[in-house]
């Protein structure tokens, strides 16, 4: 039987993961717990002193948790997509070894994307469990949001893989992380409704896939109305992922097949 070649890449990623899973398991569980304790409960204690219609009836923790689930998927995807591509080309150089076998650059990319999807499903499920434990939503609804969070992550994974394949200097990577990832996280709508922002910023925030993911997860878990139709939201995430995929495939070919 012939296994698809991209699954061989997934297998290789898994083999490395078996060596390093301890660190990621801790972050997978601790991140949501720490954020929900610090922001949801700590800052929530200050926020819930006042009545805030914009945040819904359920309190700040319940408002924050679903949005943070989507935003965390985004952060996981960004790390898992960018550094492996960068080191694969530049430091570990495993991409050069892999393309001298029957693997193609498309196999590398597909394998990486499958692997990140698996990781996202895992990370988002952990988040759903934490939401349920904190009483910020029902377990069933939180689980239903897992695919939405995963899709949000994928909408970032492929463009970031393209970026990492294009980048020439590590300092550019680091600057990008501080310059764009943090605003994406802060202004995703996870922490506060984007109506709070000055009017001219709102349309810019709507361009970020993170906002669509936050909107979807909050709709599923908290039951707040969707801002756009569900098909627009899903379509936008899928389209971003597809565009990123195309760019990453092109960029990897350009870097490796010279």
């Amino acid at each position: 039987m012939n296994t698809p070649r991209s699954l061989m890449v997934v297998e290789a990623e898994y083999r490395i993961y078996r060596r390093t899973w301890r660190g990621t398991v801790l972050t997978t569980w601790l991140r949501p717990i720490l954020f929900l304790v610090a922001m949801g409960m700590g800052l929530g204690a200050l926020i819930d002193r006042n009545v805030n219609q914009a945040l819904g009836e359920a309190g700040y923790l319940a408002f924050l948790a679903p949005g943070l689930m989507a935003a965390s998927a985004m952060q996981t995807a960004i790390t898992e997509a960018s550094w492996p591509v960068r080191t694969g080309i530049k430091w570990r150089k495993n991409y050069w070894a892999q393309i001298s076998t029957p693997l193609t650059t498309n196999d590398l990319l597909t394998g990486l994307m499958i692997w990140i999807t698996i990781r996202l499903l895992f990370v988002s499920t952990a988040f759903a469990v934490v939401i349920w434990v904190f009483g910020a939503g029902s377990f069933g609804k939180a689980l239903m949001a897992v695919p939405a969070a995963t899709l949000t992550g994928m909408a970032f994974a492929s463009p970031l893989a393209a970026f990492a394949a294009w980048v020439k200097e590590d300092s550019t990577m680091i600057a990008m992380f501080r310059f764009s990832i943090i605003p994406l996280f802060l202004f995703s709508g996870a922490f506060f409704p984007i109506e709070q922002l000055p009017d001219f910023l709102e349309p810019i925030v709507v361009l970020s896939p993170a906002w669509h993911g936050v909107d979807l997860c909050r709709w599923i878990i908290l039951g707040t109305p969707l801002t756009l139709s569900i098909w627009t939201e899903l379509g936008y995430l899928a389209a971003t992922m597809a565009a990123g995929w195309w760019a990453a495939a092109r960029q990897l070919r350009k870097r490796l097949i010279v």
């Binding site: 297998e11 490395i16 060596r19 570990r92 070894a97 029957p102």
Partner: peptide, 19 residues
């Protein structure tokens, strides 16, 4: 361009799987 994340044997194993 050996994979420094892996052991000697695992390098052969992963590489062989690519074939």
């Amino acid at each position: 361009n050996l994979d420094r994340e892996l052991s000697v044997y695992e390098n052969l194993l992963t590489y062989g799987r690519y074939f």
